[in-house]
Design a protein around this nucleic acid. Structure first.
Lengths: 228, 228
DNA sequence: TAAAAAAGTTAGCCATGACTAACAAATTAA
DNA sequence: TTAATTTGTTAGTCATGGCTAACTTTTTTA
């Protein structure tokens, strides 16, 4: 690891781009990520993305050839992981200490993750006794920047008769998160797949003595671990 | 109070200017505040200040006549007070829960005060059980925006034989705050003025069985309540 | 009260990070 | 394998919030 005295002189925008690229590359396991894809993800124009990528290449956080796909350097990844660590620790704090629900935390954590102070985040971690998972079930990188992904598959990938445990939810949409809570699902819920309807891939599931039918779109955002 | 559905669409810079103007007007009780004085305080050029003041006048947070002194509208004051509330609550949190010392909190709180979320700050207040004072002894405005100033005078204004209690310190300088702690002074310390030296206005003080000589500059930044 | 100093203003420049419109390269489909 | 489509790039514009240099107004002081 090069780690050339990390001055963390990055702007909020630069941080947003690095984190987004990391999430597309690593978390959504897209083998290759292009300029327009990143622009789409960040809801900015391709021209803006192109411009910012140029700057991040000059700073050696991003690598790519002209007209080629984007990749992060080790330093770029390291910055993204630290942002994800901050985001998830703040989400955990908001839920566990400040009465936030899991659909309320994202926007505020999105602001808090840009606060610059190593002591702040490490003390927050200690204060909460080093939590392993955030409110959506995702693993929190530790202070050494070790990043790992929870073993998980989408609920939509299961077949009739399968039994699973809800281990995480996609935190990209407030409406989705509200919906999940409202029907009574939560982390660790045990879910049985009763039926997968061929026509539209909707799924009948049972959990806590409740039977619900959910769409494939819904099931795509629910992450589970198969038990049976 | 006009309070025209406060959308809080202010940029970080706009917030910084409003807070600075409030601190010069109210806290430093300068009867009149001018453009250059504000520029000095914020360490920007008079041209920058002039430019921003124009914008804040258009938004009706600031009033002033051409070539005249600056003043805040009720709405402008209200925004400033809410920033001070956030700043002081965060400082209290950092000191009381995250092991920060009082000389470490200012820079981080300066970032945290710009986080936009009413729920965040009101829940933080509740979590700490509605603290009345920040780590430097200053009063924390409540959720209704009620702002009051602690009755206090500077240590430098006392005379030989006076006895006082330390009620607050100026939090503008990290070096000063470190110095205060190092010699053993803290909030509520009882201080006796043994001697005021005419030559340079330096003061010999006694507290906790310690005798120290401090400069007038130091004593100007120590706020006390006279006991005897 | 007139000159000097201080305070306030304006014009014009720069960097950041958005944008659109136009264009070039790469990929996909006919 | 050529044409259409998608993807990436460039040029030029805009708003924000800094800056300096030059200028005007107000205040101070000799």
């Amino acid at each position: 690891m090069t780690n050339k005295l990390n001055l963390n002189n990055l702007t909020k925008s630069e941080e947003d781009y690095l984190k987004a690229l990391f999430q597309l590359l690593i978390e959504d396991n897209s083998a290759k990520v292009g300029n327009n894809q990143l622009a789409d993800y960040l809801k900015v124009s391709p021209a803006s993305t192109n411009n910012m990528i140029k700057k991040l290449k000059a700073k050696e956080y991003v690598v790519s050839e002209k007209y080629g796909k984007l990749d992060l350097t080790e330093e770029g990844k390291s910055i993204a992981v630290r942002l994800i660590r901050k985001h998830r620790l703040w989400e955990t704090f908001l839920c566990n200490y400040l009465n936030f629900t899991w659909d309320e935390v994202h926007d505020v954590a999105e602001q808090l993750e840009h606060i610059k102070s190593h002591k702040l985040i490490d003390e927050l971690d200690r204060f909460m006794d080093f939590p392993k998972k955030d409110p959506h079930g995702e693993l929190i990188p530790n202070a050494d920047g070790e990043y790992s992904i929870l073993p998980k598959i989408t609920l939509s990938s299961l077949e009739e008769g399968d039994v699973c445990k809800l281990v995480a939810v996609n935190d990209g949409s407030v409406n989705f998160l509200k919906y999940v809570s409202e029907i009574g699902l939560a982390l660790s819920s045990e879910i049985q797949v009763l039926e997968v309807r061929e026509f539209d891939k909707s799924i009948r599931i049972q959990f806590n003595n409740v039977i619900e039918t959910v769409t494939k779109k819904f099931a795509d955002n629910v992450f589970v671990k198969k038990i049976v």
